[in-house]
Amino acid sequence: MKDWWQVTFPKGRQSLIISDAKGYPVQIAYGEKGTGKPLILLHGMGSWSYNWRNSIAPLSKHFRVICFDAKGYGFSEKPLSRREDKGHQVIEFQRIIQALCDEPVVVVAESLGALVALAIAQENPHLIGRLVVVNAPIFTERLPHWAMWLLAKMPLDIMQTIDSLRLAYLFAPLFREIMAIERRRVLFDPSILTPEDIYWITYPFIELPGTIAKVAEELQIAAQEIENWQANKPNMLTKIQTNLSAIKCPTLVLWGEQDSWFPTSHGEKLHHYIPNSKLQILSNCYHDASTGAFEVLNAAILEFLQDTDLD
């Protein structure tokens, strides 16, 4: 199997060192393609840059497209010796933008990545010129999948032991089959997911120790945030929700019409609260829009960016 990074990006997989939210240096994997104004693609929970495989080439014809793996995901560093604090992704994404770009960027973000992007657009509006959010978990009342709930309940010590024993590697064929079944459930047309897709989607979990434990940790943070929100305790969800009107950059809200994780009513509500926003419902689209509806997704992104020219 050819290396996806080498096939996709002219310089292959590159490396960037940033200070994480606790001040420790961490290595971030990224790739870039194209020239012009910077456009950063941000993946969701449990995913990595590969999820944008169908958008990189089309968008790079018009922009300098940058794809990176968030800390703990994909090919980026997975520091297991320290626990994460809520909101660390927001701080780290800001530092990635500042390290790679010297002008306001276009951010296209999906699922959890969209929630992170909304927070940055509120806190550091000078960093983002235009924003596209896809199926954002901004009003969710629970973790949307049973496996997420299960991982969120598992002690992290157990998850780290599973990682250290390389159980996903030892049972790779079974792991890939289970992941294939679950990933197809968030696609309108499950048949589009190829064996190569399954290989790369599962690669970090099977080949890169620490991935499972870090994803489990992020799910525990997410579950705690939802629980705090429901109990009216301090949480980031409420903070982001109550400051949506502070987002001033042109914003496109994209939502899968058949998204069973986060209904279209959430997209309509998000659009209502962001003053300078546009809502587009993607037909024949479940939650994984970047894979399952990439053609209409790419077209919507380019049309929006052409209509809202960034000076």
Results as ranks from 00 to 15, higher is better:
residue 178 I to W: 11
residue 83 R to K: 12
residue 84 E to T: 03
residue 108 V to S: 00
residue 122 Q to E: 00
residue 115 L to A: 08
residue 126 H to G: 12
residue 37 K to H: 11
residue 179 M to T: 11
residue 79 P to V: 07
residue 263 P to I: 00
residue 306 Q to E: 15
residue 229 W to P: 05
residue 168 A to H: 11
residue 69 D to T: 06
residue 153 K to T: 09
residue 145 H to Q: 10
residue 199 Y to H: 14
residue 278 K to M: 15
residue 127 L to N: 02
residue 249 C to N: 08
residue 175 F to A: 08
residue 62 H to N: 08
residue 217 E to R: 01
residue 280 Q to F: 12
residue 143 L to W: 02
residue 153 K to Y: 10
residue 175 F to Q: 07
residue 310 L to C: 09
residue 245 S to T: 10
residue 4 W to M: 04
residue 183 R to E: 14
residue 8 T to Q: 13
residue 170 L to F: 14
residue 133 V to P: 13
residue 50 Y to A: 06
residue 30 Y to N: 02
residue 103 E to P: 03
residue 55 S to G: 05
residue 8 T to D: 07
residue 71 K to S: 10
residue 278 K to S: 14
residue 76 S to I: 04
residue 53 R to I: 13
residue 201 I to A: 06
residue 294 F to C: 09
residue 308 T to A: 07
residue 44 G to D: 05
residue 173 P to Y: 00
residue 59 L to E: 08
residue 233 K to H: 10
residue 19 S to I: 11
residue 105 V to D: 01
residue 121 A to Q: 09
residue 260 S to A: 11
residue 165 L to V: 02
residue 206 I to W: 01
residue 31 G to N: 02
residue 216 A to W: 05
residue 243 N to C: 03
residue 300 A to K: 09
residue 307 D to G: 11
residue 119 A to K: 13
residue 200 W to S: 06
residue 57 A to F: 15
residue 101 C to E: 09
residue 245 S to Q: 13
residue 174 L to N: 07
residue 146 W to V: 13
residue 118 L to F: 10
residue 107 V to H: 00
residue 276 N to C: 07
residue 149 W to P: 04
residue 182 E to I: 12
residue 156 L to W: 00
residue 106 V to N: 11
residue 104 P to W: 02
residue 26 V to Y: 06
residue 112 L to T: 15
residue 256 G to F: 08
residue 92 E to L: 03
residue 52 W to P: 04
residue 185 R to V: 04
residue 81 S to P: 13
residue 79 P to Q: 05
residue 49 S to Q: 06
residue 123 E to S: 12
residue 134 V to I: 15
residue 130 R to D: 07
residue 49 S to F: 06
residue 150 L to W: 02
residue 229 W to V: 04
residue 271 H to K: 14
residue 158 I to K: 10
residue 128 I to Y: 00
residue 214 K to P: 05
residue 291 T to D: 12
residue 263 P to C: 02
residue 139 F to Q: 04
residue 174 L to R: 13
residue 275 P to H: 02
residue 257 E to F: 07
residue 133 V to I: 15
residue 193 L to M: 08
residue 13 R to K: 14
residue 117 A to I: 01
residue 63 F to V: 03
residue 183 R to H: 13
residue 23 G to P: 12
residue 168 A to D: 09
residue 122 Q to D: 02
residue 169 Y to V: 00
residue 87 G to I: 03
residue 275 P to N: 01
residue 297 L to N: 09
residue 133 V to N: 08
residue 235 N to M: 05
residue 203 Y to N: 11
